[in-house]
Amino acid sequence: MQHVGQAPSGDHIKRRKGHEGPRNHLITFAISIILTILAFAAVSVPGLSKGFVYSLLVLMAILQVLVQLGVWMHLKDRGHFWAILAMLFGGLVVLYAVVSVAYWIWFI
């Protein structure tokens, strides 16, 4: 059921211009490995305060996820408006859930 007037598949032309093959993906892989190793290391180093380690772990997790979503799952490429919206909205709902549970457990 071809649809007249649908957005033309010109994506491939745009992508051709800046597409360097697997380079960005391999860089993402390397970043992920490094961040993972750092996270495991943070837990093994004695003498760090719990709050500091937690913040570090959360930061590295978020960075790794951003880079995987952006590069490996193509969110940085055009034509992903709704996909980004889906992730943002889902993330927002999760933020409410996590923040309210954390607030409730630790402050009430």
Partner: peptide, 18 residues
């Protein structure tokens, strides 16, 4: 609509701020 759910829980003891 996603930000108001606890108005069903006002009396459960969440505290004045919440």
């Amino acid at each position: 609509g996603f930000m108001v759910w606890a108005h069903h829980m006002f009396t459960v003891g969440m505290g004045a701020v919440a």
